[in-house]
Design a protein around this nucleic acid. Structure first.
Lengths: 111, 111
DNA sequence: TTGACATGTGACCATCTGGTCACCTATTCT
DNA sequence: AGAATAGGTGACCAGATGGTCACATGTCAA
């Protein structure tokens, strides 16, 4: 399987996205730390972390008997660049800003 | 299944990514047009397009007996925003630029 | 050095997914 | 009207995926 495929397959699972979210908040966690936050056995979490690492979305560093996990944002950025045209990127952003504005529960002011 | 899940599941398949690539190059194609570019039966392509549409990655417009398909970049942008920190986005971009530079087959100059 | 702790492997199974087909409806053209 | 064209549905099957467990290796601390 090629790199590109690995990244998208890795992102396809909600548990793996949750793991990325945890690492986005606090980088460098161990398997045991991550397991304690998810309702799943250690083996399940380990499998998911392996896929994330193979996809390059997570990089690791061994420290004694522990293995620290870090989020790598580069593959995510590449996905963005693939389908967001540089010249129309501003439009997409503006659209999202507008959407956020409309969905705000208590608007502070009209703009 | 929630929206988020639909988007990532939709992106997980190489055929569906190829469809998005085709629409990125030329927007507003019909099922038959798209089918002719892929080595798959019409039914397979139709299933994929349905998933892309349910995920909001593709929007459609009927025109007589034809159905035109358009790429919608908004969900892609949201994926980016989820894991790319606004404050470190510059670093990621710089890293990618450096990588592209290093991988250039015939460097024009040293920088 | 012995026991506790952190991580790793291979097998196993229920469920999901990708692709095809027989058959169907709606629209256009002559 | 009748034929050709564009799109749609439900069932089906092989292969991939998610999760668990018994068991194993490497590391730390008393």
């Amino acid at each position: 399987m090629n790199d590109e495929d690995l990244v998208f397959k890795a992102l396809a699972d909600p548990t793996r996205r949750a793991l990325l979210d945890r690492l986005f908040v606090r980088d460098g966690q161990t398997l045991t730390q991550l397991e304690s936050e998810l309702d799943m056995t250690r083996f399940g979490v380990m499998k998911h972390l392996r896929l994330l690492e193979e996809a390059g979305l997570v990089v690791t560093r061994r420290q004694g008997r522990e293995k620290l996990h870090f989020l790598n944002p580069v593959p995510i950025r590449l996905i963005h660049d693939r389908w967001i045209d540089k010249y129309t990127e501003g439009h997409t952003r503006a659209l999202l800003d507008l959407k956020a504005e409309l969905e705000r529960d208590e608007p502070e002011e009209k703009r």
